[in-house]
Design a protein around this nucleic acid. Structure first.
Length: 428
RNA sequence: GGAGAGGUGGCCGAGUGGUCUAAGGCGCAGCACUGGAAAUGCUGUGUGCUCUUACGGGCACCGAGGGUUCAAAUCCCUCCCUCUCCGCCA
């Protein structure tokens, strides 16, 4: 959520920012007008309440001295009626304002490229080289079948398509990668590990901005009004919701969780294999930082995610997203993409964003500055990293002529020294 | 799931309809006293919204949301959370 004062006092700057990301500034105009009306009603109402408070006190004093109060009571009742009327109008205005504010996206950072869509994203870095194979590299689906590490048809039988089932060494590799990443972030990057609830309430979803816009993309338990998390960002960032953080900043948290996404509206897209699924695992990093430091913290956040990929010796690139491609809540965002030689494509495995105070305002998450005054924190998060696409790229980049996959040395200790995934005998 | 007890400021804790402008204590900050400290004394110490050039006002907030009333921390209703006992359970 943007600061209403920013819309009030710097409307042109906000409108320009919204235009840059392709959002219409009408909602901001509406918010500005509703805010003016709201303040008018608040001022009027407060004046009447002042009057009611003092007159009511007089009644108390009169009663004590045994005098008749019916005339004053009638007067105060009248004041009360007018207050109720104003409060009702205020309630409506505030609800409309809230609705408008929740639908206004963040203003993009001034330094990011301006553009309408992904085509204007800037390649900030390319790390490593595409491997040269003396053979036609296979895609992860074929590899996974040969190695016997996926059983997607049975996943679909048990639940439905998009609910992958890993088996044997596939399952072990996934577990190893999770532990490798968590160990790196906690031991080398200063994060505190957390294992949060995978199901959250509506207030949490609103806090990080998934609601109200993304309701259709999430799994909802009607009876309890609980939601399955689409990313660990939700429970981890909500850790400090409605709090003044009582420890020194920055605070770095990391968590492994499964993620559940209905992927409504993407039917038929990337449906093969585990590229786009309804349930996947991810290690997430979340930072709570002082506002002045959030942009340098974004750079280290990206490098924390890069370290995971560098440690595995994988070929990747980093995109600086343009104003038209960053997500609703972000002011600036880097995507990290891994090269998948089997399908000759870049796969997004991490999205590292600075939300400035946009999430913190919804979350009501603050810290005390040097003078002791509560102030909104800046929040950031980044995948560190998402597992299905890491698995895909790893399988495809590390495949060998004999159909085996040579595991990166960094992951072997987590697999009791296993060096290679070997094809299993198949009936085909 | 059943029965009961609770939720008050940074913390503890009083308050069961009207100077509550939330007592008292602890903590914290400043000042005084001191060679310095402790102890002691004094003063101050929440958040949000809003009005004001400023100084400084006003309103709201006692788990959340409704209701009753001229007036609610206090009475009523719904919900959430914590604790105790019982039941069920990996």
């Amino acid at each position: 959520m943007l600061d209403i004062k920013r819309i009030r006092d710097n409307f042109d700057e906000v409108a320009e920012g919204l235009r840059r990301r392709g959002a219409a500034p009408e909602l901001a105009e509406k918010a500005r007008d509703l805010d003016a009306e709201r303040r008018r009603l608040v001022t009027q109402g407060d004046e009447l309440k002042t009057l009611r408070n003092s007159r009511s006190k007089e009644i108390g004093a009169l009663k004590k001295s045994g005098q008749d109060t019916s005339a004053v009571q009638a007067e105060v009742r009248g004041i009360g009626d007018r207050i109720a009327e104003l409060d009702e109008r205020l309630r409506v205005i505030e609800a409309e304002l809230e609705t408008a504010m929740l639908m206004i996206p963040n203003v993009p950072c001034k330094t990011i490229p301006t553009g309408p869509d992904a085509s204007a994203n800037r390649v900030a870095k390319v790390a490593g080289e595409p491997q040269q194979y003396g053979f036609q590299p296979l895609d992860h689906i074929t590899l996974g079948e040969q190695l016997g590490i996926f059983d997607l048809p049975r996943g679909a039988k048990i639940t439905g398509s998009g609910f992958p089932l890993l088996l044997g060494n596939g399952s072990k590799l996934q577990r190893a990668l999770i532990q490798y990443m968590l160990d790196m972030h906690t031991e080398q990057h200063g994060y505190t590990e957390m294992l949060p609830p995978f199901v959250v309430n509506t207030a949490s979803m609103r806090g990080t901005g998934q609601l109200p816009k993304m309701a259709e993309d999430m799994y909802h338990c009607e009876i309890d009004d609980f939601w399955l998390i689409p990313t660990a960002e939700v429970p981890v960032t909500n850790y400090f919701r409605d709090e003044i953080i009582d420890r020194p900043l920055p605070v770095y948290l990391t968590a492994y969780t499964p993620c559940f996404r209905r992927e409504a509206g993407s039917a038929g897209k990337d449906t093969r294999g585990i590229l786009r699924v309804h349930q996947f695992d991810k290690v997430e990093m979340v930072k709570f930082v002082e506002p002045e430091k959030s942009y340098e913290e974004l750079e280290t956040l990206v490098s924390n995610a890069e370290d995971v990929l560098q440690g595995l010796g994988l070929h990747y690139r980093i995109l600086e997203l343009c104003s038209g491609d960053i997500s609703f809540s972000a002011a600036k965002c880097y995507d990290i993409e891994l090269w998948a030689p089997g399908q000759q494509a870049w796969l997004e495995v991490s999205s590292c964003s600075n939300f400035e105070d946009f999430q913190a305002r919804r979350l009501n998450c603050r810290y005390r500055d040097a003078s002791g005054k509560p102030r909104l924190v800046h929040t950031l998060n980044g995948s560190g990293v998402a597992l299905p696409r890491l698995m895909i790229a790893l399988l495809e980049q590390c495949q060998q002529a004999d159909g085996s996959v040579l595991l990166p040395p960094a992951i072997r200790p987590y697999l009791r020294g296993l060096e290679r995934l070997q094809p299993v005998a198949t009936s085909a």
